[in-house]
């Protein structure tokens, strides 16, 4: 779409030194994510999908290769507020209201009071939580809490959204609903989204590209461009294209596991 990719990794490696010898969490990962893409990372535990996301967020330091985010180093990108991060646990502060939780990054980044209120209202609207600002997290369901945590990540207008299994702990019905909402949010905001998941249908339904990874060492085994249109109703999951993509993802996962099984 645009000339400059949002995230670009070349020969990215990360080795943890442990008591049992080195662990290759990532090995020679080369990947380019364009602006406005929705990219899913899928693979078994230990394949490095979360580690990759954490490297992009400058929460981990790669031991080799290069990584740029919006053309900057991950550290610079973080300071430039290039991304919002959503963790698997909603991680809302129990002592803050929903609005208070969304306000947290804004307080830290020093927005003016009026601007904070305006932004809080806007992002709560975006995740369909209008009217819940004064509630405390324990008064909300798990799905609503996760929506609040997405609102928190959106509040400061980063153009990249990094999501680490955000719906992993939710039941299937809530998950479907949130997937649908996430797609509509993505099409309205035009953000670049990096999304880690364990679920094949989730990855296929959401993504424009699916990155299949495998463990020991953590590496990319396949990158699948989705032929599905951007506009995706839930029942697209019964279409032939959807099933074909899902099949290819499953094959990729199986191939990656071949050396272990």
């Amino acid at each position: 779409m645009t000339d400059e990719p949002a995230i670009e990794a070349r020969d990215l490696s990360l080795t943890f030194e442990t008591g049992d010898g080195p662990v290759h969490a990532l090995k020679d990962v080369t990947l380019s994510i364009g602006k406005g893409d929705f990219v899913s990372f899928i693979g078994p535990s230990g394949c490095g999908k979360t580690t990759f996301l954490r490297c992009v967020a400058a929460l981990e330091e790669p031991t080799g290769g290069t990584l740029t985010v919006n053309g900057m180093s991950p550290d610079e990108a973080r300071r430039a507020r290039a991304y919002g991060y959503v963790f698997q646990a909603a991680g809302l502060y129990p002592w803050r209201t929903i609005a208070g939780n969304v306000r947290l990054p804004l307080e830290i980044m020093g927005f003016s009071r009026a601007e904070m209120e305006e932004r809080i209202e806007r992002v709560l609207d975006l995740v369909d939580l209008q009217g819940f600002g004064r509630k405390y997290p324990w008064q909300l369901s798990g799905g609503m809490q996760q929506r609040a945590s997405i609102a928190r990540a959106l509040a400061f207008d980063a153009d990249i959204l990094l999501m680490d299994e955000p719906f992993g702990a939710l039941d299937e019905i809530v998950r479907d609903r949130l997937n649908e909402e996430l797609l509509s949010l993505w099409s309205r905001t035009g953000k670049t989204i990096g999304f880690v998941t364990h679920s094949i249908p989730e990855a296929v339904y959401l993504s424009t590209r699916i990155v299949v990874m495998s463990p020991r060492p953590g590496r990319i085994t396949d990158v699948i461009e989705s032929p599905l249109p951007r506009e995706r109703p839930l029942d697209i999951r019964d279409s032939r294209e959807f099933i074909e993509v899902a099949h290819r993802v499953r094959e990729g996962l199986r191939a990656g596991h071949g050396d272990v099984l």
């Binding site: 300071r79 919002g84 991060y85 698997q88 991680g91 947290l104 307080e107 830290i108």
Partner: peptide, 19 residues
């Protein structure tokens, strides 16, 4: 995770202590 979240905001040590 809660501490990582604050790191993604580039929060200062003081901010993560107080907040």
């Amino acid at each position: 995770e809660q501490l990582d979240l604050l790191r993604t905001y580039s929060a200062s040590g003081m901010a993560s202590f107080l907040k």
